[in-house]
Design a protein around this nucleic acid. Sequence first.
DNA 1: CTCGATCGTTCCGTTTACGGAACAGGAATG
DNA 2: CATTCCTGTTCCGTAAACGGAACGATCGAG
Lengths: 201, 201
Amino acid sequence: MPQPPPSGPPPVTPEADTDPSAIGRRVRALRAARGISLSALARQAGVGKATLSGLENGTRNPTLETLYAITAHLGVPLTAVLSGPTTGPTVRGAAVSATLLEVFEDSDATYELYRMRVAPGPGQLSPAHQAGVTEHVTVFTGVLRAGPADEPLTAAAGGHLRWTSDVPHVYAAVGDDEVTASLLLRYPRSKEGHLINASRR
Amino acid sequence: MPQPPPSGPPPVTPEADTDPSAIGRRVRALRAARGISLSALARQAGVGKATLSGLENGTRNPTLETLYAITAHLGVPLTAVLSGPTTGPTVRGAAVSATLLEVFEDSDATYELYRMRVAPGPGQLSPAHQAGVTEHVTVFTGVLRAGPADEPLTAAAGGHLRWTSDVPHVYAAVGDDEVTASLLLRYPRSKEGHLINASRR
DNA sequence: CTCGATCGTTCCGTTTACGGAACAGGAATG
DNA sequence: CATTCCTGTTCCGTAAACGGAACGATCGAG
């Protein structure tokens, strides 16, 4: 399974460049593609020409606000100038590879939605997560056996599995076909609610 | 400070936020999900505690470098803390908005994975799809009533619904909270072949 | 209770990203 | 030719993001 989150060494996304010069090149390319001058874009986006020039040349480490003002005016999402379009770390294990599609948080929990593939073969064992974490899997293709190591569940295409993953758990493809599925990890909000310190100050 | 986008008024993405407080909340949620303290994350990511504290509280406008150092150590892409990696097409109805995250094809069916939001209120009725289409919903937050119009099902956070949507079906949030969920549509490869039989393949 | 460790916030000096202005080069106009 | 407008870069004072240190609060151990 993905060992993305929990405590880790550098789980690391090798790619994901925030390399300023790469970002600068993309911004410049986008601007050139639209035939807008640096001066014009700076003026319209409400940033200084010096800022935009430095950004495009990679000699600055822009602020989110600045970068957003520019990309918004280019009509592209911020992600368009951050590493490739294929942003999103893919974590791999012996049998499982998972790509983080989206992170979602609300008042009760944080959710991470992955696209998961399980290769046929011996399967993979993942260590326990912290208490209260639950996993939800919807199988698209193939047959998946997954769940607590001592009591795995099985689902075929269209099926759905759910378990509490605070114990070691397994993923394995049943049969010779690769399994594709969506994986939703739910991390309950840390119970120690000293967030209540909302006392104004 | 730059005003976001005077141009292309984004009709959608009501919260195309680089809103610093929203980013701060997401970072804090991700950190909490991993059970790491602010001090520890700051130390590991090589940023000052003051920086991380201010970032999480929305009182700072971080540079890319800072934000990347933090998200990298959380094991998530930068996009995870920005409003959305989801630049995909969004479909809207009276109560439901859904963003297409990914499309999968295999020999038996085509799958479309959506992130769905259902606003509180009267709900929404959708017409029947073609024969054999099934819908799978995993609820993240709120309580959802959905399914065939004459026989809807109900699920709360963490719950899962599945039905065959070749009849008119409904979506409605139960209670006053917006529902967020993932929606998987499965379109079986047309057996009735009113298009397919044109040429075998 | 006292002590020590760690939590998250706030204070503060340093660094740097910011926008405005000044600058050199190029293209179009008279 | 000079003039004018534009381009993109560089200079510079100001605002603010940065990391380190100090702070009060909280928790666990003795």
